[in-house]
Nucleic acid binder design. Structure first.
Length: 228
DNA sequence: GCGACAG
DNA sequence: ATCTTGTCGC
């Protein structure tokens, strides 16, 4: 297992757990509540060794993109299940410095506490961003849950033992659900409902991370894909 | 020990 | 994540 702790951040797994316990108290004292004005979405794409991190800032009500920033750099850390943040977070945090419109909540392509150590990338990122984060994953990682009803907006909770660690959310009728989990500083119900409000008419993935994903591929097309 | 395993 | 054509459906 190769993990270089030579990044703009570095937390060992025990440190992650401590940090999580510390911020868990803030969640209980002051979880995010209400309707955000601006939200952000984060995603990363790759072209060989190059990674492209995109952050989209969007007006929550109109779902219009108000800012988009990105960062391109070499990524040498391999992907290890459970340690996605070690691969993607350094690039994301560099891109984050370019954001000028401050969002209240940040959504990630990946998991929050729906993770073997309860520290998925959305949770890990919150330690540095210090704001509420939510994980939106396209495939389940861990946990047990029942299939949500086929209609749009229905959801079931995901458990491990007696711990409720996420939700399986049906964003479109008869379409495979997405997997929502708390990153930090927000409760699961808000995470689910805010994610659902960011779903467009026909897409399975909420617009906030979908737009980030789209831009990520566009940048790759224009800057990295062509040999000449 | 063996397989599974977010992106 | 990435490699990839056509195709069914709104």
């Amino acid at each position: 297992m190769k993990v270089n702790h030579v990044h703009s951040f570095s937390l060992s797994i025990p440190e992650m757990k401590n940090k999580q316990r510390e911020l868990q108290q803030k969640i209980e004292i002051a979880p995010y509540h209400g309707t955000p004005t601006f939200v952000a979405g984060v995603d990363v794409a790759y072209h060989q060794q190059m990674g492209i991190a995109v952050i989209i800032v969007m007006d929550f009500k109109s779902m219009q993109v108000v800012e988009q920033v990105w960062q391109i750099d070499q990524v040498t850390q391999e992907y290890i299940p459970g340690l996605l943040a070690f691969r993607e977070l350094p690039l994301i945090l560099t891109a984050w410095k370019k954001v000028t419109i401050e969002p209240e909540i940040v959504f990630f392509d990946g998991n929050g506490i729906l993770h073997p150590n309860r520290v998925g990338i959305a949770t890990h990122a919150s330690f540095f961003l210090e704001k509420p984060t939510v994980g939106i994953a396209k495939t389940p990682f861990i946990g047990h849950y029942l299939e949500p009803d086929p209609q749009r907006g229905s959801y079931t909770f995901i458990y491990e033992q007696d711990e409720m660690i996420g939700a399986s959310l049906r964003t479109q009728p008869n379409v495979k659900p997405v997997y929502i989990s708390v990153g930090n500083l927000i409760d699961l119900d808000s995470s689910i409902h805010l994610s659902m409000q960011l779903v467009g008419k026909t897409s399975r993935i909420p617009e906030i991370t979908r737009q980030a994903d789209i831009l990520t591929r566009k940048i790759r097309r224009e800057y990295l894909s062509h040999p000449n």
